[in-house]
Design a binder for these strands. Structure first.
Length: 587
DNA sequence: GCCGTTTTCGGCCCGACTGTTTTCAGTCG
């Protein structure tokens, strides 16, 4: 698939045009086309072959021609043209806070600045200060921008951000001055990584709440402290992050929450719709002329635009607004649809809990089952179980299950997919289990695709765990062709895992969406190795919601008995999974 | 460059902040 490659080209063109001072709307058009392309699960080459490029929203005649040209020749004339006269290092400067295309263009023209090093020199030797429109403060801000770009990690994981946000919210509630408070931004949309932490609150007096906020014990620095807005820097896992608090009036809470939740693209489209209706939408409300017609609740804001409320996880301008307008939003997965955790480890391999503790924790979450899936023998570093130890564990589980009433422990394994694609346990053993998860744990560069495809041919394999193998905080993942894995999953009826551990979230939302469209079943498991690990399910559910998965797409919505039924053919065969798509209720 | 049950041309989201200006441009979210 060349979608991402072409999107990167279009983004590059936008960068270059921005610096060249091209009309802003043209830049916006390129950026929008790039975003739509990067999000799209259909293969751009297929659409091009069918002459349907212009049916993609945001792609018109001009960009369609450029995509065609690229697919045919491997080149885009416009790309070369746009980048002519623009040194590679100049584009990077757009990433510095406070620096935009206009200023970069001027610096390049007047001072011959070509990259970050040139810019640093110009700041140091005072030549930057000589530029028109450049005062002492702007130079200082640019200096700070360069510094913070080098110090701040791009984004932090959703889990790390949630910990701080939860702490901040609890801290604010304790003041008794705030009445309503919520996380907003990408945190509320449950993106896998988060930039800044945005918190919205109502309460009085604003200045006092902000003062308390900036006095948060974890504050490293206070960036701003006004009557309605405060900004602080906090430390998360060694990285510095900005956290913003905004105080709004009760009557504006809904529109402010809507606005600060985003995404930007979603908001832009909503505003366009408001305008078409002769309305104006801002963080202060929905207005007809000077009269405010909505703003107190998010539902009211959407209703004023003739739309149903939509879940924050869907607000990315990926078609959700159009569906909502037809009252055809899917009923996406809810936390309550998850009846159990399908991937947990115990002390038998590399977990830190005994089975009864895990049962207790799972019961507290309202689950009716867990699948114990410890590692298999060849995963030495994780204490993988030999066949004998696995059999002993199965007997132990049988014994515990006797006394559990309506709760059930599924006897499972996370069996290793070996270097030749065979499994680490023979079928005789796998056959006695309730739930077989297979996964790659070594040889990340060695025939991973072929090995996975082969493992999926075994009908005893129910799920492929963490199919991409990536770690969000920094591991590329296996050298694997996920499109072929998806195809094989469709053909064999194997489910794919959405590993809910915050650093994995694997499959990611892009491939989850593809899997959903192909009718592939998804299995959510936290892969927990510790007591708190079961709680990670909320991130898995968040990503599932971002991919628009519905209850019926997820095997965790089945009962323990249904899952333990040996024949996966009945419940999971490809033929029975062909999705009839009935019209849906909004929600 | 995209787009159209108001338009094939003339629009294109909105508001705040900052720093540099003397009425506004640039940047950000």
């Amino acid at each position: 698939m060349k979608n991402k490659e072409i999107a990167a080209h279009l983004d590059r063109i936008a960068d270059a045009l921005e610096i060249k001072g091209e009309i802003g709307f043209k830049v916006i058009a390129y950026r929008k086309a790039a975003r739509v392309l990067a999000d799209m699960t259909d293969d751009i080459e297929n659409l091009a072959a069918e002459g349907r490029l212009q049916q993609i929203p945001g792609i018109g005649g001009g960009i369609a021609r450029k995509i065609d040209e690229y697919l045919k020749t491997g080149e885009m004339k416009k790309y070369r043209e746009a980048l002519t006269g623009i040194p590679e290092g100049l584009l990077e400067l757009l990433e510095i806070q406070g620096l935009g295309g206009k200023t970069i263009h001027l610096m390049h023209q007047e001072l011959g600045i070509r990259d970050l090093e040139d810019l640093k020199r110009a700041v140091a030797d005072g030549s930057l200060a000589g530029l028109r429109g450049m005062g002492e403060k702007r130079v200082e801000n640019i200096r700070k921008g360069i510094e913070s770009r080098e110090r701040v990690r791009e984004r932090v994981t959703i889990y790390e951000a949630s910990l701080i946000a939860d702490e901040l919210i609890a801290y604010l509630k304790k003041t008794r001055l705030v009445s309503r408070v919520s996380a907003a931004g990408s945190l509320r949309r449950m993106k896998e990584t988060v930039g800044d932490i945005d918190i919205l609150a109502t309460g009085k007096p604003g200045a006092e709440i902000i003062r308390r906020f900036t006095g948060f014990p974890g504050t490293l620095r206070v960036l701003a402290q006004g009557e309605t807005k405060g900004s602080i820097v906090v430390r998360i896992e060694g990285a510095e992050r900005q956290a913003d608090l905004r105080i709004v009036a009760e009557s504006e809470y809904g529109s402010a929450l809507q606005y600060f939740t985003g995404s930007k693209a979603h908001n832009i489209k909503l505003r366009g719709m408001a305008k078409e209706r002769g309305l104006k939408l801002s963080e202060y409300g929905v207005f007809r002329g000077d009269r405010k017609i909505a703003g107190r609740e998010e539902e009211d804001v959407y209703e004023a635009l003739d739309l149903p409320w939509m879940p924050p996880e869907m607000r990315e301008d990926r078609g959700e607004i159009e569906l909502a307008a037809r009252n055809a939003l899917p009923m996406i997965l809810g936390a309550g649809d998850i009846r159990g955790d399908l991937h947990v480890h115990t002390r038998a391999s590399d977990g830190s809990q005994e089975i009864p503790e895990l049962v207790e924790l799972a019961r507290r979450l309202g689950y009716s089952y867990i699948a114990v899936c410890d590692h298999s023998q060849s995963v030495k570093y994780a204490g993988g179980l030999s066949p004998e130890r696995l059999k002993r564990q199965m007997r132990e589980i049988d014994a515990i299950n006797q006394d559990l009433g309506d709760f059930r422990i599924l006897k499972g394994t996370e069996v290793d997919i070996l270097h030749d694609g065979t499994l680490d346990f023979p079928d005789e053993i796998l056959r006695d289990l309730d739930f077989v998860v297979a996964a790659v744990h070594s040889g990340f560069k060695t025939n991973v695709t072929e090995r996975m495809l082969r493992a999926m041919e075994n009908p005893l394999v129910r799920v492929i765990a963490h199919p991409s193998g990536r770690l969000i905080s920094g591991r590329e993942g296996y050298d694997v062709d996920l499109d072929r894995v998806l195809k094989q999953a469709t053909e064999t009826g194997t489910a794919l895992e959405l590993n809910a551990y915050y650093d994995r979230l694997d499959l990611n939302e892009f491939y989850l969406k593809k899997a959903r469209e192909a009718g592939i079943k998804i299995s959510l498991g936290t892969d927990t190795h510790s007591a708190g690990g079961l709680q990670m399910m909320r991130f898995g559910v968040g990503i599932a919601r971002r991919a628009w998965l519905e209850k019926s797409d997820v095997i965790n919505s089945l009962s323990g008995e249904e899952l333990a039924a040996k024949s996966r053919a009945a419940a999971l065969s490809p033929s029975s999974r062909r999705r009839a798509r009935p019209s849906r209720q909004g929600g």
